[in-house]
């Protein structure tokens, strides 16, 4: 009886999990299959049917050649903005967290509090003031107007602070000092290498946030050639007859083409995640155990 009960609980759990998996995975499958179909098949055919490789090639060709390879320009722009932002965010946040964890200075607690506060503040709330600021220094339309706000990443500071204060014993740094390190070398040779998982974690989160950010570049960058992917996609969307019936180009952008563009937009995040996964997991576990 007991065994039967346990079996029953297990089966139920399995069914629930399966239902949730299906709920999340069905749209992804649909998206991956979409470019293989024609617009008509996509709407009226079986949602899980595979169209043809011919259709796929067509959709890819049309998407990429749209406006003279605009998609590639957007990808390039997105990469520049994202990685530029990450680079500055890392250079600033890892040492900042280290300093907050290991040094005692006036205003340290206040600074930590402010870090937490701005961390929970929605980024979009800052877009308009940032726009006014960028406008005042005539930076609107330049990459720097996006990269600099992207590099502002208080979450990274906090993550680095948590890591250093919970997982790195002070004596380890003292040992390095006694072994002949000056403060810079203590950080570079000991503290920074130890923080590798945190660096990966901060980089990944910053990357996802930057890559998907829509509103800030939308406000800051007026010209099509400066667009990052999310705004490019919006541009693409608006030239689709399905969404904007007034428009009819020589080679129309239809739903399968939109699907291709969407996949192109999400692929980098997926790839970065796959590569960073191992470090990410250990980064998220950092501090959970103490030696």
């Amino acid at each position: 009886m007991k065994i039967f009960n346990r079996l029953w609980t297990k089966t139920l759990g399995f069914i629930v999990l399966l239902a949730f998996t299906a709920f999340f995975i069905v749209p992804v499958i649909w998206l991956l299959l979409a470019p293989t179909k024609t617009d008509h098949q996509l709407i009226f055919g079986n949602p899980f049917s595979f169209g043809s490789f011919h259709n796929l090639a067509h959709a890819i060709r049309v998407t990429f050649t749209y406006q003279d390879y605009a998609l590639l320009t957007w990808v390039k722009n997105s990469a520049i903005y994202s990685f530029g932002g990450i680079a500055i965010a890392l250079v600033a946040s890892i040492p900042a967290g280290y300093a907050l964890a290991f040094t005692n200075f006036i205003g340290r607690r206040t600074l930590l509090g402010i870090t937490l506060f701005v961390m929970i503040m929605p980024a979009t709330a800052l877009v308009l003031p940032l726009f006014l600021e960028a406008n005042a220094v005539h930076a609107i339309g330049s990459p720097i107007s996006v990269i600099l706000p992207f590099s502002f990443f208080p979450f990274g500071v906090y993550l680095s602070y948590i890591f250093y204060s919970s997982s790195v014993p002070r004596d380890l740094l003292n040992a390095a000092r006694i072994d002949g390190c000056n403060e810079w070398n203590v950080f570079r040779k000991i503290a920074l290498p130890l923080a590798r998982p945190v660096v990966a974690l901060v980089a990944f989160f910053a990357f996802v946030a930057n890559w998907n950010n829509f509103f800030l570049p939308f406000v800051m960058l007026p010209s099509n050639s400066n667009y990052p992917l999310p705004i490019g996609l919006q541009d693409l969307l608006s030239s689709t007859p399905a969404f904007n019936p007034g428009i009819g180009g020589d080679v129309p952008i239809l739903r399968p083409e939109l699907a291709v563009a969407t996949i192109v937009a999400m692929a980098p995040v997926l790839i970065v995640f796959l590569f960073a996964q191992r470090s990410l997991v250990s980064g998220m576990l950092a501090g959970a155990t103490k030696e």
Binding site: D171, A176, R177, I178, D179, C181, R196
Partner: peptide
């Protein structure tokens, strides 16, 4: 004199080995 210039060596209670 700063620790790095004292020419001392120290063994810590928790060893403080560099884990990496």
């Amino acid at each position: 004199v700063s620790p790095k210039d004292r020419d001392i060596a120290m063994v810590f209670q928790n060893y403080a080995l560099y884990p990496h």
